[in-house]
Amino acid sequence: MKSPFIAVSKSEFILYLREPSAFFFTLIFPLLMMLLFASMWGNDPFPDEEFGYVDFSVPAFMGLVMVTSFIMSFTTSMAAYREKGILKRFRAAPVAPFSILAGHLSAIFAVTVAGVILLLLAGILFYDLKFWGNIFEFIFVFLLSSAGVAAMGFIPASLAPTARSGTVIANILYFPMIFLSGAALPWFMLPDFLKDISLIFPLTHAIKLMQEVWLGGPFLDYPVHIAVLLGYILAGLFVSAKFFRWE
């Protein structure tokens, strides 16, 4: 017997690669956005700083990859699976729901990592991207950020009854988040009231945390970001454990 978890993640990964729009929006779109802004602002150090725009924004575009895969792709595909009866077919097999969800998520995480690697390669090749942090701390906050964003996606993914409602909810979460949390536009350019609003999103905290650690800040200096992300993780796990719908 092979592991159901590995089998599910393998087939979900294959399915992801066969979905051209998901492929584009997760892997190509964030890369194009980064290259677009980088072509305008370059990567010369900001006044009185060592880092430039690209150094500062690569972690933000990592956030864009995360939100695209964990909110957009995950929510819409789970909702479609529910509506079509694909989850029901899984349920008839002797497999724990956890294996299905975790397998699905790990495939999406693999795609996220691929998208992040593309960003890093482009940054290094074209803009002399530099890193000031501790690599292990950064990997840790990257995982924590992914989990926090994924946990937000867990909530609609566990509940949305139809593909249509899943898409609507995903869009309602996605677009405000990418513009307000610093994923597409630098967060410091926002007016104060939008900055305040943006703090409800896990992505805002994920991006700020990744940026700070990228630029050399020790992650323990940012307990608020960590706490918000952990809060989302707990809420997401609670909702999916308690209210997950197969049909």
Partner: peptide
């Protein structure tokens, strides 16, 4: 089941391998 599906872009052999892994 009367009404159920598997993902559209899964090939039959992939689906059978996937479901074999559950037993």
């Amino acid at each position: 089941q009367q009404e159920s599906e598997i993902p559209d872009r899964l090939r039959l052999r992939e689906a059978m391998e996937l479901f074999s892994s559950f037993y």
